[in-house]
Nucleic acid binder design. Sequence first.
DNA 1: ATCGTCATGTAACGTGTTACATGATTGT
DNA 2: ACAATCATGTAACACGTTACATGACGAT
Lengths: 190, 190
Amino acid sequence: MGEQRDLTTLEYYVLGLISVEPQSGYSIISYFEMDWWRWRGSSSPGSIYPILKRLESQGIIDGELEVVHETRPRKMYTLTPLGEELLDAWLRAPVTKDEAGEERATLMMKFLFAEKRLSSGEILKWLDSYEEATSYYITLLQVNRNPMATGVWSLHQQLILEATLMELNMQRTWIQMARQRLLAFAQNGS
Amino acid sequence: MGEQRDLTTLEYYVLGLISVEPQSGYSIISYFEMDWWRWRGSSSPGSIYPILKRLESQGIIDGELEVVHETRPRKMYTLTPLGEELLDAWLRAPVTKDEAGEERATLMMKFLFAEKRLSSGEILKWLDSYEEATSYYITLLQVNRNPMATGVWSLHQQLILEATLMELNMQRTWIQMARQRLLAFAQNGS
DNA sequence: ATCGTCATGTAACGTGTTACATGATTGT
DNA sequence: ACAATCATGTAACACGTTACATGACGAT
């Protein structure tokens, strides 16, 4: 108990994977190697096994040797109540302005794990905060866009600003689309 | 000289800033604090000063105390020929498939510093490689998109795939726009 | 006189990377 | 018999973060 230090993104990723179903160190590493939706970081044994030890010693996950039948023994980890609490708090946390500007990969990761752990109401609330943070950034950047026309910014700087704005607008469009799909799903389960 | 170790992204960032104009440790830190186009990383004295020492000891940058007039003394760094060579090689390197999927911020940083260091021909070639890498990813993901319809993917997984595709398409659109603007600029300097 | 800014540094720390080591089981 | 895969670990290292320390100069 005592002070609860902040977990790293990688640690939350591990928690998320375990929350979907119990995992061994090896299965977590394999998952990172598939890497279907672009999470940066190779995550070799050198990071995963120490993380599992760390989380276990803090009572966040619980590992026990699988009953050996047909296959080699492996240590399967599940979330403890504390682990569930930490993960859910992290998933529920509203998106801040800073997160909207960077780290889309992390946000998508949250969104992925939220599917099975949060209620649709909570997920919609989270999307709202995401949209708000994104909109905040868009207006902020558009203020900077004016001097852009007057030649304060170089050509490349202008183009980079343009790219950032395009990305933020894309994010907003996606959020709206996601919300509608979630609502449609909730209504007729299609 | 011996083996030339790889520089980190942060080190290249520092090189880029110095290439634009000579910098002191303090001015570099201030630049990071402005942070106008979203580069992740606070970059406090604890990282910048060691980097400057490291780069200087390797003959990549050259620092000398500014002649003191009116203001306090500070160590201003410039690129050595080796430093210019390393920076330019990094800027010129074609975008790989991996970089296209992640790290847009780093690519934009390259694009920023390329403005003053590469010829427009080289920049256009770089954009071509960027587009190729992006297109590669788009086709790769669209293959994965089919099973999506058949219900292998969960709703959230589908949406995340959708977001990734939207981002990649946005990047491609931006690349094409950037190319046209660069060409227009080269022709009539508007 | 004192506060904020300019300016440079260091020391402890945490975390992820790289590389290595081990060994059992399954497939050919 | 041998290679590939499953499975777990550790030790050295590099890098960035946090926090601290120092001090000169300019403004109020």
